[in-house]
Amino acid sequence: MRPQLENVLREIEKVIAGKRKVAGKILMAMLAEGHVLLDDVPGVGKTTLAVALSRAVGLSFRRIQFTPDVLPSDIVGFTMYEKGSGSFVYRPGVLNHVNLLLGDEINRAASKTQSALLEAMEERQITVDGNTYPLEAPFLVIATQNSVGTAGTQILPYAQMDRFLVCLSLGYPDYEAQMTMLRDRQDANPLDKVETVLGKEELIAMQREVRAIAVREVIFDYIVRLATASREHEDVEIGISPRGALFLDRMAKAKAYLEGRDYVTGADVQDVFMDVCAHRVLLKEGAGAGTVKQVLEELLKKVETPDRHSRFPGMLKK
């Protein structure tokens, strides 16, 4: 693992113990310039994790708590008539000058508010009254959603779900981690102990390096076969979209980079497959296949691995 990234993970671990894997995945999503959806119960440290990450990487951080009456103008800003100067003035919303935005409980917001986030997430710019404002780079949205079915929530639209690079879940910490947490939080807030170990510019440079990582034809082939197989599965209503395949490639690259390699292996794709694809797949109603996870695991087992395809380096079997 690259030493700088190792440092970042160590800083995060100061605050949240035993969640190294999830923190690594969020870091990967950051390197791949994607957005993260955290799907979990309240109180497992979603916000703390985001804050720790922003401090360790030296990003400007903001959070917005979504409720049914948060309006799109709260997010993208609005123009207002100023009496003194007699002109319209743009009042920026939460998205301006922010690198890491934590959208808390995104599935409690009204759908128009959710869709206001769409352009920002995809294009990294916002348009208000015909004026387009670019967002500051790097830009990362970590959205949390309460598990579906909790009171006052509505399911995120499929288009919105598809725009998140990964959907992660923190889960409850184990016994050891809980003991450590209780011990650490007796007198001081451990968030104060987090030091900035990585600069904004360094992160941008890393993102560029991730983009430059070489991916062989066999890997592309594997990703396409996985996506196609998911669409053709009999229990699946909506399979992995082409955007999903693209994200899978980007995430695999970030994984390879995190591990200090300059090439993507089949294992990288398999490791990130669940996180990237689980929230993109919709099962048919009444299908007897069980959960999305089971279907995807079945796909991984069924689709031939690139290892078997790569008799000649990097090329497809003729």
Partner: peptide, 10 residues
């Protein structure tokens, strides 16, 4: 070693 041979370009 195999993975490096199969997937990297160096």
């Amino acid at each position: 070693m195999f993975e490096e041979a199969a997937y990297s370009s160096h």
